[in-house]
Amino acid sequence: MYAITSKRTLAKGVIEMTVQAPRVAAHHKPGQFVIVMSDEHGERIPLTIADSDPQKGEITIVFLEVGKTTIQLGEQFNAGDSLFAVVGPLGTPTHVEKFGTVVVIGGGLGVAPIYPICKGLKEAGNRVVAIVGYRSKDLMFWHDRIASVSDEMLVTTDDGSFGEKGLVTDALAKLHDGGAKMDRIIAIGPPVMMRAVSEKTKDWGVSTWVSLNTIMIDGTGMCGGCRVHIGGETKFVCVDGPDFDAHKVDWGEMFARMKGYAKEERMALEADHKCKLAFEALRR
């Protein structure tokens, strides 16, 4: 069992948890993820390792409450409880070397996973320019942490309630138009954002990398459920990735595959909800 040592709400629906997983913490590298199961019958869901502390044997995960499992984790699991399974660190670590100047973009929930990447890149001697984007000011989190591991940080909000008004791609375009040096771009966030970044940078000739968040089960290359075409070849995101050259991703297929279980997920959530309502009615 994997004990939850702390839990806090960073913004509406955004939860940060630290979990005891000594073997994972000891070997974690930037860009890797864990598969988490809340209980014995739960789903296996992939979550990026947002930070790790090998001394304490702890990892940090940050997740958005979007569906059955993440809502269950957010609502029913607290410090002192245990998760049924935490497996990792999985995936091929993000390629870290001295590139020069690296622009690292985190959109929404993607802000958490870029923290270890910025940290790693900075330690490797790069100049790190971070662009973090949120829908609005009240959904902001971890921008202070990103600031501590980057040389320059730009914040955007969709509604302009903090930083620049607009999307991360607007800030990126501005940087580029201003002649900023960019040797590599890394973008993590909702697939629509990653595709938008990819489309923008295609003509710039700057190598652009994204971290794909396909549906997964085992996370070890066994089921093939995470597969997607990259440069015309089928790749398993959990072992060959999750980082890929953004310009080679078959985005149409990626989007279609993410919706593969939309109906079943909605049903599962509704069933959960009905149970809860029935349970509350009983209690009354």
């Binding site: 089960i217 070890t220 290359g221 066994m222 089921c223 093939g224 459920g225 597969r227 997607v228 075409h229 089928t234 297929e253 279609a256 595959r257 919706k259 593969g260």
Partner: peptide
């Protein structure tokens, strides 16, 4: 445990599974 696929067109459509999945 690594599933073989045939590599034919349309194999990554939703609803096409490897036996393992």
């Amino acid at each position: 445990g690594y599933p073989n696929m045939m590599g034919i067109p349309g194999e990554n459509l939703n609803g096409v599974y490897s036996a393992n999945e």
